[in-house]
């Protein structure tokens, strides 16, 4: 490579000296493409994992439509709606964060990461209140179900419905928490000046992950909270 190097056009940046280029890649472009492909493959496994839970929901709905309708009336439409708006907003700020660093503005990236984390935290707080209400009313999965002792009579298999509800929203919530931790990490790394218009694939991948979390919620919300 060093032989040809002398003939390279002068305007081409020398990637070999970029401290963020791993030794097993030739260029930053190649490194970025590899990381992104890896992220998309990971997202594929995430989609497949969540699809199993969605299928469980649809099967439950197919066999026990009245029960699902009756049980879902006990979920708060407003809490779910607020969380949808909050999560969509966080996706927006995350996308703007990626755009900022594409333009080389690390300061704005950090601001956008903070806003995104703020939205993620609001989401989890709303979730906390929702879960507390469900715990109080004994609307819990499987053998922990005791809503009938709290004066809520739901015909059929409500303990299965709440099993599906807690597993779907719970796994999604875990993803939100992991996303928050990753964004905090990215915030620290951005503060160290690691990211630039040439090296931002970590931010882009964080964004892809966060948008997937949003994507799952886009389907969870109408299915669990809204559908009649």
């Amino acid at each position: 490579m060093s032989n040809d190097h002398a003939h390279a056009p002068a305007h081409v940046d020398d990637d070999e000296h970029n401290p963020h280029l791993a030794h097993h890649f030739d260029t930053m472009g190649q490194q970025t493409a590899s990381a992104k492909l890896g992220m998309w493959l990971f997202l594929a496994t995430e989609i497949l994992m969540f699809s199993g839970l969605f299928l469980a929901y649809f099967i439950l709905r197919m066999f026990y439509p009245e029960m699902v309708l009756e049980a879902h009336e006990h979920l708060s439409k407003w809490a779910g709606g607020i969380n949808t708006v909050v999560l969509l907003s966080s996706s927006y700020t995350m996308a703007l964060g990626v755009r900022s660093i594409q333009l080389g503005d690390a300061k704005k990236l950090r601001l956008m990461l903070v806003l995104t984390m703020l939205c993620g935290c609001i989401f989890m707080v709303v979730k906390y209140f929702e879960y507390s209400a469900k715990f109080e009313h004994g609307m819990l999965p499987g053998k922990f179900y005791s809503a009938h002792l709290h004066g809520y009579e739901i015909e059929g298999l409500p303990h299965i419905f709440f099993g599906v509800y807690f597993l779907m929203t719970g796994l999604h919530g875990v993803h939100v928490v992991i996303g928050l931790a990753i964004m905090l990490w990215m915030f620290i790394r951005a503060g160290r000046g690691e990211f630039s218009a040439k090296n931002y694939v970590a931010i882009e991948n964080t964004g892809l992950y966060w948008h997937l979390v949003d994507l799952v919620w886009i389907f969870l919300f109408p299915l669990l909270y809204l559908v009649k």
């Binding site: 472009g29 970025t32 594409q102």
Partner: peptide, 12 residues
Amino acid sequence: VEHPHEVHEHIS
């Protein structure tokens, strides 16, 4: 890749 040093990312 023809021009590996160029970043091809689209900025919306």
